[in-house]
Design a protein around this nucleic acid. Structure first.
Lengths: 239, 239
DNA sequence: CGTGCCAGGTGCCGT
DNA sequence: ACGGCACTTGGCACG
């Protein structure tokens, strides 16, 4: 159990003071959230720039640096929690936060810090339900949902093309490859299923006696076309 | 030009006070960032729960509600900026933030607010370079990078299977379908290319005289296998 | 508005 | 580390 630590907030700190506060937060494995006017520059796998404006900047104890704008739930820019992190109060009175790893770098240059909050976030276990794995479980509990008379034999069965969601037999004893999707799908799901079926046909030397079944709430027309063209089936499944 | 507004920070506000402050921020199209101990519950396309802990909660003027934990740059939970948003100070002295739309709902129940910052984020134009479109531009400027003697004829050419990145002819005058990827790719890219080639062959009634070329920094082995099996080529391209 | 596809995709789990 | 794939994928551009 770690010592509980106070959350502290600072209004309009001078850049030099903010630099020290952020640095102290980093050294203490704490988080620092800043609101301020800044520019953002990213360089790495791609490169990007954000023009000056008021943003929300967060440095987390895992080393993550991220910048939120006014819209959307995804950061405008970010840096993963590896590599170095430096805070600099520049001669022209700006606060520069810089996260730098082997391949990526992110620089946030604030010309004013309106608010700074230092806090101790807790690590979170989030559990999610309604995933594809949950759908597979339901299908295994009630295989008729896949198709009347369907018998599952294995999950994640390996093929040269990758693991098959559900491997089994239909009412007539034919081998079936079942690909499960939790939401409406497009062409990619049909080709994925097709790859598994082809790979298994080759692997088992049974040239065409293997069926492909795509289980999903719904499919787009192009997906349906591909399934038809390759001779596979679609079995609608509603969550 | 809007009136510049002060960023305000509040340390340890009582839930009832925080509720009013957040509500006022929402009404004024401002943003509110809270640090506090809370649980998080999401229900919609899937459902999820996060156990109690100190998190960073942000409500943006576009209506987005998001929750950051201690790690990673992606929120633990979020809600898009549509639908309703309510703030409630409960009888047992908690602050409940609830975003609700037709299909999704997110509830953040704080038992303590350690810090609350109200601010005015600016909308951001971020420009990114190094996208796939940039790679395509380079290839068009110097088609030999695709292949010696290659001549581009069109970009985003439509086929029944979708738009082709670059459509052109090789040194021998054969039609080529070029699929461009900005990073190392797996099987999906190979099947995507294959779909375009097949569709174009059928469309142009030239049964097999159409080549497929995948341009990417590198490919995985399975991707290479599929390309080989379907008779397509890989042309490495380094950013 | 649905369909298709890119994304600095990210994250998870397997070899 | 590399590979294959799901993800509340999100976001854009086009029919």
């Amino acid at each position: 159990m770690t010592e509980p630590t106070e959350t502290t907030t600072h209004a309009d700190p001078a850049p030099a003071d903010a630099a020290v506060l952020v640095r102290d937060a980093v050294d203490a494995d704490r988080a620092a959230a800043l609101v301020g006017s800044c520019t953002v520059d990213y360089d790495g796998r791609a490169s990007g720039h954000v023009d000056p404006g008021v943003r929300h900047v967060v440095r987390q104890p895992d080393g993550t640096l991220l910048v939120h704008g006014a819209t959307g739930h995804r950061p405008l820019a970010w840096h993963a929690g590896d590599g170095d992190f430096t805070t600099t109060a520049t001669a022209d009175d700006r606060l520069v936060l810089r996260a730098e790893s082997n391949t990526e770098e992110l620089t946030v240059a604030l010309d004013a810090v309106h608010a700074l909050t230092v806090y101790d976030p807790d690590d979170a276990d989030k559990d999610v339900q309604g995933t594809e794995a949950d759908v597979v479980s339901r299908l295994l509990n009630d295989p008729d949902l896949v198709e009347s008379g369907f018998t599952p034999l294995a999950t994640e069965r390996d093929t040269p093309a990758g693991p098959v969601d559900i491997y089994g037999r239909d009412a007539n004893g034919r081998i079936c490859v079942v690909e499960v999707k939790r939401s409406r799908v497009g062409p990619d799901a049909a080709t994925q299923l097709d790859r598994y079926v082809r790979a298994l046909r080759e692997d088992l030397h049974t040239d065409s006696d293997i069926r492909g079944i795509l289980v999903a709430p719904s499919v787009t027309q192009k997906c349906r076309d591909i399934l038809l063209e390759r001779g596979h089936d679609f079995s609608p499944f509603e969550a």
